[in-house]
Nucleic acid binder design. Structure first.
Lengths: 243, 243
DNA sequence: TGAATAGTGTCTTTCAGACAGTATTGG
DNA sequence: CCAATACTGTCTGAAAGACACTATTCA
């Protein structure tokens, strides 16, 4: 896009002012080992970089040469760090201010992604690690304003899980209803009623049984898979009376 | 993060790669003359400007010298065009791509604002006009991707009105319950049950009666005002069973 | 008085909450 | 058999839908 930039400069001259830095960050969630986890990247230790060695959300500058738009930039960052294309990627919001990046006025476009549980969901990159989303204490200090962004992502996820089928995107290809309920409970951090849960999920036309059962130490459970559903289901009520 | 490519471009302290343009746009809603309306600005007729004379959302470039952050930039644009500070301003999302602005890669941070109905809610600026939000047809061609942004704002507003008290911010300082219901119905474009509506609103601890009544050609109605409520109320159910 | 709108009451429906009870496996 | 987990049924309660009914003003 060097062309456009030159054109801009020889126009009425109105574009010759300082531009903020533009970045994209992605909050990537997964459920592993029974807890909600988020992928973080360790920043380079180079002391000339901002926040050296601190943990940060995966992300970085928009590359005007490679990224057609913000969403594809987010997809690229996601793929760089995990090797996968998420079945669910949603815009979370944007954060921009004069002070959030020591290098100058900057604005980031934040996305959040849900990855399906997989037997060996390792962080793809060497500088990447999964961190459990602490239920309160033990908060990590993150680079930039990423702690705030992460907090917003968790809130958004929790809030949407109350009345949508989002957790379906956190499931492996085949799962049982109790599995799904467990994931809801992990994200919401509270137990749900089994009976109401089953009724709602089955009524939602969201999942379909496959011709197999999950065997275990007790009664086998019906396996389901996600229907070829484009978008999440919105329920008319939340799961429990609101706070 | 600095992946390999960015490291190459951006040695320590080097940030000299092309930066996208950064703008903020605001979708400003009001209810006037019984319909939901949105404020649009006519772009300059100068043929060197993009989309000359086209209607656009109020907005513009972030001014790194004046704007401390995105939100204050949005507040500034809102005040420039309407002279008021909205009681409700929410981030809507961001749109960025190589092609949305002919001047080059650009990203806009979109907000939406709700203005209280006022007897003489004129558009403050000369190039500004209120346009009814057409229920379907008669769509205006807007500059940039603003039609898409407006569409998203309307959807977001409608969706949130289903289960929040957002319309309270569209009301004048004092209003009756039937007034409020009318605004809900205008935004949702469908009738609501009076009885359920009243019950819900009065239970929400959102409004309080003032010591006056609205007189009219028929039975007077109790006037209410918004309680000093910081944030909108979220209801546990939507108003009607979903489609 | 009647028209018009505000506001209430009552019955029904829907669906979650609670929880007991049945079903089906392995040991 | 028992333990464990999957799944179903039944009762209750809260809140919405439907709609009739009462209340209060003006003309």
């Amino acid at each position: 896009m060097a062309d456009n930039r030159e054109k801009a400069l020889d126009g009425p001259g109105r574009l010759d002012f300082p531009r903020p830095l533009t970045t994209v960050d992605v909050v990537i969630f997964i459920v592993r080992e029974g807890v909600l986890q988020v992928l973080l990247i360790q920043r380079p230790t180079d002391e000339n970089e901002p926040f050296p060695a601190a943990w940060a959300l995966p992300g970085g500058f928009v590359d005007t040469g490679r990224d057609a738009d913000l969403q594809s930039c987010a997809v690229r960052k996601l793929k760089d760090k995990t090797g996968v294309v998420s079945p669910y990627l949603e815009q979370l919001g944007s954060w921009g201010s004069a002070t959030r990046d020591p290098r100058g006025w900057s604005a980031t476009h934040a996305y959040f992604a849900l990855l399906p549980a997989a037997p060996l969901a390792s962080a793809g990159a060497a500088d990447a690690r999964w961190f459990p989303v602490g239920t309160g204490k033990g908060k990590l200090k993150l680079a930039f304003d990423h702690a705030e962004i992460l907090e917003a992502a968790i809130q958004r996820l929790r809030s949407k899980v109350e009345y949508t089928s989002l957790p379906a995107y956190l499931m492996p290809p085949e799962f049982t209803l109790p599995d799904l309920q467990r994931v809801y409970e992990i994200v919401l951090d509270r137990p749900l009623e089994k009976s109401a849960f089953r009724t709602r999920m089955l009524a939602a036309d969201l999942i379909e049984p496959v011709a197999r059962m999950r065997k275990g130490p007790s009664r086998p459970a019906q396996l389901y898979r996600l229907k070829k559903t484009k978008s999440p289901i919105y329920f008319a009520r939340t799961f429990n009376p609101p706070t």
